[in-house]
Amino acid sequence: MAQMTMIQAITNALDLELARDNNILVFGEDVGQNGGVFRATDGLQKKYGKDRVFDTPLAESGIAGLAVGLAMQGMRPVAEIQFFGFVFEAMDEIAGQATRMRYRTNGRFSCPLVIRSPFGGGVKTPEMHADSLEGLFLQTPGCRVVIPSNPYDAKGLLISAIRDNDPVIFLEHMKLYRSMRMEVPDEAYTVPLDKANVVREGSDLTVIAYGAMVHTALKAADELEKTKGVKAEVIDLRSINPIDIDTIVASIKKTHRAVVVQEAQRSAGVAAEVIAQINEHAIYHLEGPVLRITPPDTVYPFAMIEDEWIPTPQRVLAGLDKALSL
């Protein structure tokens, strides 16, 4: 066991998988010699050679299309989109091509590929770097979307993603890259791609979050217990496509109230989908409406006001108070 940051856990997962299977390829902009702009692929080209860990020309559709072509011919590409805000450039190759290959060919060809990409706010990036665009891929049939909130999950989920035989979008919140260290086993292990995790037990209210918002929700839950003695249960979704509704329903049966926290703007996203599924599966267990705590329906703001735009522990706490009062 070693203490690792999330970025170290990701590098470690890539390293172990590259060693396990020669068909695994890691590529993207600056991932080779430079080891990635966040050093996620640091040292991997030196260790595994330029045929397996390599730089690509600077073109996101080209990167994703390269991955589709490689995956279709039996390779296991792990492609990096340098910042997820650039994914619009690659939308057709991911959402129009990779996710449809198995269906189109009735399984004759498939796309066992991983798109890794940093995203998330609070680190003062220029435009199109921090946006939470995961909702686009919640509406995309044929792929899985996972978002780890800590180093242990990051390693286990990435290994699962690489071993999965369908496309997986693997989103890495930039603010979590180096914000915490955690005991991470040295050997390879997997965390399932479709199971949420109860990260704080509670009996009075369920808070559903993912990515960096898990930590914001935990802070708010701690404050709520300290100030009011109310015990909130916090669920880390880990996967937003598919959503593990069973874990959510089990919690709501205990707490009878729920709030969803997300960093993406409000409408038609993960929170909306979670609430729709709660409506289908657990409405009679609820004592009040399920609220969403989100930024407003605007574009991601320029850096100067991003910290006010992203839900803060105070805003989440106010939301929890409101949910308890309804």
Binding site: L66, A67, V68
Partner: peptide, 20 residues
Amino acid sequence: IIIGAQYVQTAGTALAFKLK
């Protein structure tokens, strides 16, 4: 059906042949 999509996939397909 998408007019240029196969062009980038061709680069990937050919790279797979080269690597293998």
